[in-house]
Amino acid sequence: MNLLFAILFYAATVILVGGIAYRIYEYLGTPAPLKIPTTPAPTTTGGVAFRMFREVVFFESLFKSNLWIWALGWLFHVGLALVLLRHLRYFTEPVNSIIAFIQPFGMYAGFAMAAGLAGLWARRFLVERIRYISTPSDHLMLALLLGIAVTGLLMKFVMHTDIVAVKTFFLGLMVFEINPLPAHPGLYLHLGMVVLLMIVFPVSKLLHAPGVFFSPTRNQVDNPRESRHIAPWAAQLDSKN
């Protein structure tokens, strides 16, 4: 088991990092020939950075379009962010003081995350329009994340595992040493699902996370009159005329 999980984690990390890097390389390499920022759009680069900040941190557009999805989605993502930060304690020694500070918040964030996920999943059954657009993978993705959250919370509050050993395992992985992982079914499940999530990340809708930064309607400066915007392939067409 120790060896299996070690291999899985190495493979998943390579796939996750390599996959996302490759996607970003693809997005960067594809020209954006048209100026299409959704107006009203900022006219300066600083303005665009601020817009992007609001979109990524507050989900501004979503707030304007649907309060239910916003509330549930934001709850889930903020919970997820805190939980992820909290997990850094398994990978660092000594633990950074900020990470130490958020530990208690991270605990409750786990519940927020699970509640948000449950609400989002309920929508996929209850709202006719959302039911229509949902594919099996949409359900599975929510199930996977909810599974991770629930097994995590179970280990925290119901059937504890030896987290000192878990930390030794992960610190070991980081220096290519394999230490024993506690034999605990909850932990196996939890880590197995995390591995799966890392593997599907670069080929699934989870690409929205890097994708949002590359969306031309959100990351472009609204200045088509001030400076001409032209992609290389469009410039070639120009020179032919």
Binding site: R23, E26, Y27, T30, P31, A32, P33, L34, I36, S61, L62, S65, N66, I69, G73, R123, V127, R129, I130, I133, S134, T135, D138, K205, L207, H208, G211, V212, F214, S215, P216, T217, A231, W233
Partner: peptide
């Protein structure tokens, strides 16, 4: 390969329904 918009939009949708 010509339009980043298309490329990103094909991948990014989470079927949130907004």
């Amino acid at each position: 390969g010509k339009y980043r918009s298309l490329r990103v939009y094909m991948d990014a949708c989470v079927h949130c329904g907004a």
